[in-house]
């Protein structure tokens, strides 16, 4: 019981603290790969610190929704972090929300962000909102299908149960998971405003999605939004780890030692994930916005195909 509570708090703290660091690491890797001088890995922290201390400027016609949205988006991401097993599977909160609820949480954050973007009534805000929802309505079912493929194997929709099942079962190769993993990677890129779909480092008007929505935010609201974005990337990485490489996640009956051992293993996985992400981003070119639906449709169909392969092969 106490172990479980520790596990829960540890994961929350880890997610909150490590999320900006992961972002910093990805940016550093990208800079290395592109032969630029790399920014400090701590830069996202400094950014957040700076933003929190600034005076917030709101547009004249910003409504309450605009001010509340950063908290809702941030809150959704924190709750999401609480139900994804990253260090250990003894998560009390994971029993009240399964993977479908997790997808719902991401959708909640997305809807609030889009609504907030439409609140000011600038061209960019609505453009960003529309594109974000376009990406979202294709990415969300793809993510669900990825999770369903895994949950058909583990016969549970709880992420905790899925990763426990994968760890405890004897090692077997699941071809369907190969499809799911590819689909998941595509969804991850699209949902986290990563390169083939969106570019987190640009404010070029015609191509941006995520940044266009945040254009009117400043100071602490912006800080919360940016932190939420970092948390989202962290959460996606953690989902990927829980579904596809769950080895090293402490089991439900584990003690403190395993739990503490889980943290460095997680760090290692995240480091390689960040490097891989940077590599993908460096190697690919940004798609035209109207190719993005095609990209996501591919993800969706791969995920569905994974499910079919599972049904055919029974594994």
């Amino acid at each position: 019981m106490i172990v479980a509570a520790t596990n829960q708090l540890l994961e929350l703290a880890l997610a909150l603290l490590a999320a900006p660091l992961l972002l910093g690491w990805v940016n550093k890797c990208r800079a290395w790969l592109q032969n630029r001088s790399a920014p400090s890995i701590w830069l996202p922290y400094r950014n957040l610190h700076k933003l929190f201390h600034k005076d917030a400027v709101l547009a004249d016609n910003a409504s309450l929704l605009f001010r509340a949205a950063p908290y809702v988006v941030f809150g959704s991401m924190v709750v999401a972090a609480a139900i994804i097993p990253s260090v250990g599977t003894a998560l009390p909160s994971a029993y009240v929300a399964d993977a479908i609820a997790l997808v719902g949480l991401f959708a909640t954050a997305r809807v609030f962000m889009s609504l907030a973007a439409m609140d000011i009534g600038t061209a960019f805000g609505t453009l960003g909102a529309r594109r974000e929802m376009m990406i979202g309505f294709l990415a969300e079912p793809a993510l669900l299908m990825v999770i369903f493929t895994a949950s058909l194997i583990a016969s549970s929709t709880s992420l905790v149960a899925i990763s426990t099942a994968f760890v405890t079962r004897e090692l077997a190769i699941y071809p369907s998971l190969a499809f799911a993993a590819i689909a998941f990677m595509l969804v991850l890129l699209a949902e986290n405003a990563r390169i083939p779909v969106d570019n987190p480092a640009t404010h070029l008007e015609l191509t941006m999605i995520h940044e266009a929505m945040l254009l009117e935010y400043s100071a602490r609201h912006l800080a919360l939004m940016e932190w939420a974005a970092a948390l989202k990337l962290f959460n996606y990485a953690a989902i990927g780890i829980a579904l596809f490489v769950p080895w090293g996640i402490a089991r439900g009956d584990a003690g403190y030692v395993e739990l503490l051992a889980g943290a460095p293993i997680l760090a290692l996985k995240l480091l390689s994930f960040g490097a891989g992400l940077a590599l993908i981003e460096t190697l690919s070119a940004k798609l035209r916005i109207f190719r993005a639906p095609e990209f996501l449709a591919t993800a969706f169909l791969f995920a569905v195909l994974g499910m079919l392969v599972h049904l055919l092969l029974g594994s």
Binding site: P175, S176, A178, F179, F302
Partner: peptide, 9 residues
């Protein structure tokens, strides 16, 4: 099976 899945992919 894995090879089959890769081929299909």
């Amino acid at each position: 099976n894995l090879c089959a899945a890769v081929l299909l992919l």
